[in-house]
């Protein structure tokens, strides 16, 4: 099985709202895949269907070879889910929580080792209630990876983090990716997708509007660069040539020289603007 996830023709409707309008997708084993998209674009619905939380209206789906519309315990033990908002079990300590959840899995990782992996060893005996928001997310991740999952879902894992906590969290995710697990994450942060994901899909209006590597998404690598300097700017596909000419004109240093390539954010904003219907 080359693909961890295969989706064909997925649709889902809530009342009058067609939340997902036909999604096709392959996520390869061992890759880090990010879903990008504005709120209400169908991102969470799609992921929750893949996680086995929601029923779909139509489409063929295979997640680790199993239809998530009929989740079994065996299948659940092979995936790990890190939820977006959870404030449960606040009166247990970190160690008690992780030990208890380890009991659900047929072959769990060592609780102490998992707590160390998410960087909470010195908080192991603290009640979850006493932890900061970032530390709580680490407990969520600990519970998500506890069962030795082949596939991990992370739903907006760093929302509300300060920049330092986000960097530390990224390192944690990169570490997980290196163990060979497939990682599917949703995020609002384009720098996060760029830093972590091998491939991204942009969902807007219930459809995938672009899919690919962050560096080449939406023709980003072939888009024209903008060269600006103190007295002007020019859009060009050959910025080096422009700079050489400018350098000749100024006889050396070009005052205020800058070259802009479209950022992932530029591409993203253009992509999600188009399909509003």
């Amino acid at each position: 099985m080359k693909n961890a996830i295969e989706v064909r023709g997925l649709t889902k409707r809530y009342g009058d709202v067609q939340a997902v309008k036909g999604i096709d997708l392959d996520i390869r084993r061992g890759e880090v895949f990010a879903f990008l998209g504005p709120n209400g674009a169908g991102k969470s619905t799609t992921v929750e269907i893949l996680e086995g939380y929601r029923k779909r209206d139509a489409g063929e789906i295979s997640v680790l070879g199993v239809d998530p519309g009929r989740p079994t315990r065996e299948w659940r033990s092979r995936i790990g889910i890190v939820l977006q908002t959870a404030n449960d079990a606040a009166e247990l300590s970190v160690l008690e929580t992780v030990r208890h959840f380890a009991g659900y899995y047929p072959n769990p990782r060592d609780p102490d080792e998992v707590i160390a992996a998410v960087g909470l060893s010195d908080k192991a005996n603290k009640r979850v209630r006493q932890l900061s928001g970032g530390q709580r997310r680490r407990v969520d991740v600990a519970l998500g990876i506890l069962g030795n999952p082949e596939l991990i879902f992370l739903d907006e894992p760093t929302t509300g983090f300060d920049p330092e906590a986000r960097r530390q969290f990224w390192e944690l995710i990169e570490g997980l990716a290196q163990t060979g697990s497939t990682i599917v994450l949703t995020t609002h942060y384009l720098d996060e997708a760029e830093a972590l994901a091998d491939r991204v899909a942009v969902i807007a209006g219930g459809r995938i509007v672009a899919e690919g590597e962050p560096a080449t998404l939406g023709g980003r690598d072939t888009a024209k660069a903008v060269v600006t300097w103190e007295e002007g700017s020019v859009e060009t596909s050959t910025p080096t040539k422009t700079i050489v000419e400018l350098s000749r004109r100024y006889d050396g240093e070009v005052p205020g020289l800058a070259v802009h390539r479209p950022t992932l954010e530029d591409i993203y904003l253009k992509l999600i603007e188009a399909p509003r219907d």
């Binding site: 939380y53 315990r73 065996e74 659940r76 889910i81 959870a86 899995y105 069962g147």
Partner: peptide
């Protein structure tokens, strides 16, 4: 709590 538990085996 319920959502988290429903996502485990």
């Amino acid at each position: 709590t319920l959502k988290r538990l429903a996502g485990t085996p």
